[in-house]
């Protein structure tokens, strides 16, 4: 009972740190998605060079740990600091964890999302594409009215998983980048509190509760969007939306 009370009373202390995790996720998701769409279309294109470049990028960033990618981007930024950023007076931006963090996350999530979107692009029903072309639609029209709506509907459940995993990946940011002043995320706060009184069970449980709560919120919001995307189908034909309950089809 005391333990539960201790957990309950510590929960509000993580509110502000959680904002940093949310910032990293929200700052990188939209840009990452647009970048991913470009990568997926590039990988699906008929141009050999473009296809090779996009596939290579996706493979490299999916095949290496995000932890290493953070270190890599940070050290490259450090090396470029004396020759580029300082003369251009951009150090305040380029060396800021609030910039490098989302930068690395964008590069990473773009690769994972591109893989999802590419898989979805390949499963767009051929008949619909042919029908659209038979109507005399231009390539842009075909993309806007057939390819895109199909792609996003097929990809949405997998993309929901990716968003949750990206949110979890924000826990790694401050293990690799310097912590400035009170800019601490959830994991960092948990570690700081742990070093004070060595109560691993209390502090890590509270951190876990925060991650769990925000993950559930993401599943809820993305589930509602999925329902909206699928509103043309009768309710019994809509494939199950992703939940906390595990499904065998997942990525990452």
């Amino acid at each position: 009972m005391d333990a539960l009370l201790a957990i309950w009373s510590e929960i509000p202390r993580y509110g502000q740190p959680a904002l940093f995790n949310l910032y990293f996720a929200i700052a990188s998701l939209p840009i990452g998605f647009i970048f991913a769409l470009g990568l997926a279309l590039g990988r699906n294109s008929n141009n050999r060079v473009l296809r090779g470049l996009c596939s290579g990028y996706i493979y490299a960033f999916r095949g290496s740990p995000l932890f290493i990618q953070f270190f890599m981007f940070y050290s490259i930024m450090l090396a470029l600091n004396p020759i580029w950023w300082r003369p251009m007076e951009l150090s305040w931006l380029m060396m800021n964890p609030l910039f490098i963090g989302p930068l690395a996350l964008v590069m990473n999530t773009a690769a994972y999302t591109a893989e999802i979107l590419y898989g979805a692009l390949r499963t767009v029903p051929r008949g619909e594409l042919e029908a659209a072309r038979a109507f005399g639609m231009s390539r842009t029209q075909v993309f806007r009215t057939v390819t895109w709506p199909n792609t996003i509907r097929i990809a949405w459940p997998a993309y929901t998983n990716e968003v949750v995993f990206l949110f979890h990946a924000t826990a790694l940011v401050y293990f690799t980048l310097p912590v400035i002043n009170a800019q601490r995320d959830i994991m960092n706060t948990a570690q700081l509190m742990f070093e004070r009184d060595y109560n691993a069970f209390l502090h890590f449980s509270v951190a876990a509760i925060w991650f769990l709560a925000i993950s559930l919120l993401i599943f809820f919001i993305f589930g509602r969007i999925y329902e909206r995307l699928m509103r043309h189908l009768p309710p019994d034909q809509v494939p199950a939306r992703p939940r906390l309950r595990f499904r065998p089809k997942y990525i990452r």
Binding site: M187, F204, L212, S215
Partner: peptide, 18 residues
């Protein structure tokens, strides 16, 4: 289902400490 809601790095730090 716990791995779906909680990041792996948290477990990775927590189990050895616990």
């Amino acid at each position: 289902s716990m791995v779906r809601g909680i990041p792996d790095v948290l477990f990775f730090l927590f189990f050895p400490l616990a």
